[in-house]
């Protein structure tokens, strides 16, 4: 399989003292499902946002789909961003707009400024939106305002908005951190399904180890801005978890996680 994403020696500091990431190195193959785990404040969100340059890394190089992301001009960067869908903890929908309008926002990057301003979408695009929403089980909510949805439904709209971009990569920043266990499972199942059956590469930030172990092909453990583990979920040991989360906490999490995974 070909390499889709390569992160080379990336560092990021905020101001002079906060070093959020230091010398991050990893790569992701096409079609892989990778989870990034680590305690809160480890730098997971920063790492994810450095990939599509929502945050500019201080140094290092990122290659996505054969483009050097940090050598692109504004225009070229927008084109690359169209190929990267992003999913957020708080869904980040426009509350006043309907499910389908929010979904079609994913097409804006492909439109002329005027068509985007006026919200003009072709029949094809609308059909595609309805199609994706049906796959995600939202076909009965097409014209509902998005603030009338449950958290799990909102996140599915977030996924639909990312999918309609026709992305090669999905970046998910704690997609289930605000959801109950049932909705979390639905969302994770959808993400796994998107990866397996659509062949879209998924990189997901998580803080639940058990979920990461259950769904991922590979796990990257981050602590204090450094990668401390990078391997398959079969190969992870309790001492690795210790290293990622720090002593006692790691033990607790692993015991819990282990029992769930079975």
């Amino acid at each position: 399989m070909t390499t889709l994403l390569e992160v080379k020696n990336v560092s990021k500091h905020f101001g002079n003292d906060t070093k959020a990431l230091s010398n991050i190195d990893f790569s992701v193959k096409e079609g892989e499902f990778v989870s990034i785990i680590g305690p809160s404040g480890a730098g997971k969100s920063t790492l994810l946002r450095c990939i599509n340059r929502m945050i500019d890394a201080s140094s290092g190089d990122i290659i996505f789909d054969n483009d050097h992301v940090y050598e692109l001009n504004k225009r070229e960067l927008k084109k690359v961003r169209r190929k990267i869908g992003m999913i957020f903890q708080h869904y980040n929908l426009v509350n006043r707009l309907s499910v389908i309008e929010n979904t079609l926002h994913g097409r804006l990057g492909y439109k002329s400024t005027l068509a985007g301003i006026l919200g003009l979408h072709s029949e094809d695009e609308k059909l595609q939106a309805a199609n994706i929403l049906q796959i995600l089980g939202l076909e009965d909510q097409l014209y509902k305002r998005s603030d009338e949805l449950s958290g799990g439904q909102k996140q599915r709209v977030g996924i639909a908005r990312a999918l309609i971009q026709n992305p090669k990569l999905l970046l998910c920043d704690e997609p289930i951190a605000s959801l109950d266990p049932n909705s979390s499972k639905v969302i994770m199942d959808h993400l796994r399904n998107i990866c397996t059956s659509m062949g879209i590469t998924v990189v997901v930030n998580l803080h639940q180890v058990d979920v990461a172990l259950k769904y991922s092909d590979r796990i990257i453990g981050v602590n204090s801005g450094k990668i401390v583990f990078n391997g398959t979920s079969q190969n992870i040991t309790s001492s690795d978890i210790h290293q990622i989360y720090g002593s006692d906490e790691g033990k607790l999490i692993f015991d819990l996680g282990g029992s769930h995974v079975g």
Partner: peptide
């Protein structure tokens, strides 16, 4: 909410589109 603005920036939308859509 700045979240929706961030989401559309991440999908490659431009300033005018974000202004009128969000």
């Amino acid at each position: 909410d700045k979240g929706a603005i961030e989401a559309l920036q991440a999908s490659g939308a431009n300033w005018w589109q974000i202004v009128f859509q969000v």
